[in-house]
């Protein structure tokens, strides 16, 4: 009483029962742990199974005679429904696959449409660009036509130039011919020129000598006039001397 605990008869009961249980189980374990028991058990199992088989067979036979469905018949019907269920499952899986395929297709289509829209808008801008370019091209065409006209003119000019070039070539060839001719004439001309020059030089030297003679005469006149006081007379003399020499 001092500890405050009351006597619990169940605690002891539990302890004893558990002990008994353990020991009895151990005893049974040991009793059955032998070859003979296993063989006997096997024989017992076989006999039981054989009788059960016979019972089932007879049951089926009687039921067949009496036209009564047995559990086996019900099981066969159940099997059919299980088969249907299995088929449904397979179909469901196929539907899933289809759904997945379709969803992936839809996804693909959506992507394609998005791409198409993108392309169309791109094409629109491209068309606008192209329209602008076409107008520019028209202008260019006019320019080109002008250019073409110019080209035609240029071609004509080119033809003229070619003709001119031909003519120039002709002239050149004539020139060459002339040059060749000139080469032979020039040497003659040179000689005649040299001779003319020589003659000229001889004339110049004659003139020099004449001038020197005239100079000496003038010097003599000067000396004479120094003696004359009037300058007027010298001038007349010089002028008359010049007019006389002419």
């Amino acid at each position: 009483m001092a500890t405050g605990k009351t006597y619990d008869p169940f605690a002891g009961y539990k302890l004893v029962s558990e002990m008994w249980e353990k020991q009895l189980n151990g005893l049974l374990y040991k009793l059955t742990d032998n070859k003979e028991f296993v063989q006997t058990a096997n024989i017992g199992l076989d006999a039981y199974s054989r009788y059960l088989e016979r019972l089932r067979k007879n049951q089926e036979l009687i039921a067949a005679f009496m036209n009564i469905p047995t559990k086996k018949d019900v099981a066969n019907v159940a099997k059919l429904s299980i088969q249907v269920e299995e088929k449904m499952d397979i179909l469901e899986e196929q539907i899933w696959n289809l759904q997945e395929g379709l969803s992936s297709l839809n996804k693909g289509n959506l992507e394609m449409f998005q791409e198409t829209v993108k392309i169309v808008t791109q094409m629109k801008t491209e068309f606008q660009k192209m329209a602008r370019e076409v107008s520019e091209t028209k202008n260019m065409k006019a320019d080109l036509q002008e250019l073409r006209q110019g080209l035609v003119d240029m071609k004509i000019i080119q033809v003229n130039i070619q003709e001119l070039r031909k003519e120039i070539d002709g002239i050149k060839s004539i020139k060459v011919d002339i040059k060749q001719l000139n080469d032979s004439k020039e040497s003659n001309h040179f000689q005649s020129d040299i001779q003319e020059l020589k003659l000229g030089v001889a004339e110049i030297s004659n003139m020099k000598t004449d001038l020197a003679a005239m100079k000496s005469l003038i010097e003599k006149d000067k000396q004479k006039k120094k003696k004359e006081p009037e300058k007027e007379q010298d001038k007349e003399l010089v002028l008359t001397g010049v007019s006389k020499s002419k």
Binding site: K35, V38, Q39, N42, L45, R50, E53
Partner: peptide, 8 residues
């Protein structure tokens, strides 16, 4: 194979 549950 001394104890078999096959037939059972």
């Amino acid at each position: 194979g001394q104890l078999s549950f096959d037939r059972f």
